[in-house]
Amino acid sequence: MTEAPVRSALLAVLAEILPGLSPAEVTDDKTLDELGADSVDRVEIVTGLVHRLGQDRSIAALADEPDIGRLIARLSEGSAG
């Protein structure tokens, strides 16, 4: 999977969970914390993203990704996890 559909899915999930967030604020170097997500939001974002993409991934492993760019890259690698 390329990064474009992962990025699109991420923006859709972020719009649901952090409705005040502008898509322009979502840059690869930002963390979910920096975007205003608390611990519950982060779990909901990663869970929603994995669900939208139809992937079977470890939520805990993805939560360890340091920033948006790495999270997108990891989810673009495929559905194994």
Results as ranks from 00 to 15, higher is better:
R52K: 05
L18G: 04
A37L: 07
A61C: 11
L14Y: 01
V40M: 11
V26F: 15
G36L: 04
V50W: 05
D64Y: 05
H51K: 10
A37F: 12
L21D: 12
A12W: 00
I68N: 11
P23E: 03
T27Q: 15
V40Q: 15
Q55L: 11
L11R: 07
R70C: 07
I17G: 02
L49A: 02
D56A: 11
L35I: 02
D38E: 14
H51C: 00
G48M: 08
D56E: 08
K30G: 14
V43Q: 00
G36P: 10
G20Y: 12
I45R: 07
Q55C: 04
D33H: 14
G48E: 08
L49D: 04
S58Q: 08
E34R: 08
D64V: 13
L49H: 07
R57F: 10
L53R: 09
D67M: 01
I59Q: 15
D41N: 15
L10Y: 01
I45P: 08
A24M: 13
L10S: 05
H51W: 03
A24G: 08
E34A: 13
L32Q: 00
V43S: 01
A15H: 07
A63D: 09
A63K: 13
D67C: 11
P19M: 05
G69P: 07
G20P: 11
G48V: 04
A15M: 08
D33C: 09
S39L: 00
D56G: 02
I17D: 11
V40E: 14
G20S: 13
L35S: 02
E16M: 02
V40I: 15
D67N: 14
R70T: 11
A63C: 10
L32N: 00
L35R: 03
D56Q: 05
I68F: 09
V43M: 01
P19H: 07
S39R: 06
S39Y: 12
A37M: 10
D38A: 01
L14E: 08
K30M: 15
S22W: 03
V50L: 09
L14V: 03
D67Y: 05
D29M: 13
P66N: 12
I59G: 14
D29W: 15
E44M: 12
I59N: 14
T47A: 00
P19F: 06
A24C: 05
G69L: 13
G48Y: 06
V40P: 07
D56H: 03
T31N: 05
V43G: 01
V40R: 10
I68E: 09
R70M: 06
L49N: 04
G36V: 03
A15P: 03
G48Q: 04
D64F: 08
L21R: 12
G69N: 15
G69Y: 07
E34P: 01
A15W: 06
V26K: 09
G54C: 06
L21Q: 11
G36T: 05
I17L: 10
T47H: 00
